Amino acid sequence: MALALARGAGGEADAKRQKYTGAELVPALQEQLIHVQHVNRKSGLFGPTMLLSGHEGEVFAGEFSPDGRALATGSFDKGIYLWNVYGECENYGVLKGHANAVLEVHWKHDGTQLYSCSADKSVCVWDPESGKRLKKLNGHTAIVNSMQTSRRGVPYLVSGGDDGTTKLWDLRVRRCVHTFEHQYQILAVSFDDTAERIFSGSLDNTVLVYDMRMRDADPEVLEGHGDSITGLDVSKDGNFLATNSMDNTVRIWDVRPFAGGRNRCLRIMRGATHNFEKNLLRVRWSEKDALLAA
Rank of each mutant, 00 (worst) to 15 (best):
I143D: 04
G11H: 15
L281P: 01
T165N: 04
G271P: 04
E196D: 10
V144C: 01
A28E: 14
F258R: 11
K132V: 11
F180S: 01
T112F: 01
S286M: 12
A195S: 13
S122D: 03
S43K: 13
D237P: 08
T21C: 06
N248I: 10
Y115C: 08
C124A: 11
S228K: 14
I34V: 15
K278Q: 15
H38N: 11
K16Q: 12
A272W: 07
R284Y: 07
V221E: 09
G160I: 05
I80S: 02
A101G: 03
F276V: 14
F180Q: 00
T273R: 15
G44Q: 15
Y184V: 11
A72K: 05
F240I: 12
Q32P: 09
K236S: 03
L222R: 00
A217L: 03
E12R: 15
K132M: 13
A6S: 10
I198F: 09
Q185D: 12
Q37F: 12
L82C: 08
L95I: 05
W126C: 00
G201C: 05
T249K: 09
N91S: 11
C176N: 14
M1S: 12
L203S: 09
N138Y: 04
N91Y: 03
M246N: 09
R267Q: 14
P128S: 02
L134P: 01
A272R: 08
P66M: 00
Q37G: 14
A23S: 10
A9M: 04
T179C: 07
T149N: 04
H106N: 11
N84D: 13
T179Q: 03
G11N: 15
V123A: 06
F64R: 07
H55Q: 00
D162Q: 01
V209E: 02
S116D: 08
V144H: 00
R69S: 15
N91D: 05
W83K: 01
Q183M: 06
A23C: 01
W83F: 05
E220Q: 10
R17H: 10
R213Q: 15
L51K: 14
M212W: 05
V59H: 06
P155R: 07
N91P: 02
H140F: 09
Y184T: 10
K132T: 15
G57K: 07
F191T: 13
R174T: 02
E287K: 15
A242T: 08
T149M: 02
Q183N: 07
E56H: 13
S159Q: 01
H274D: 03
N40E: 14
P128E: 05
S150N: 06
S159P: 00
H98N: 08
L3Y: 08
G87K: 09
G74P: 10
D193H: 13
V26R: 11
V36F: 08
R284I: 13
K132P: 04
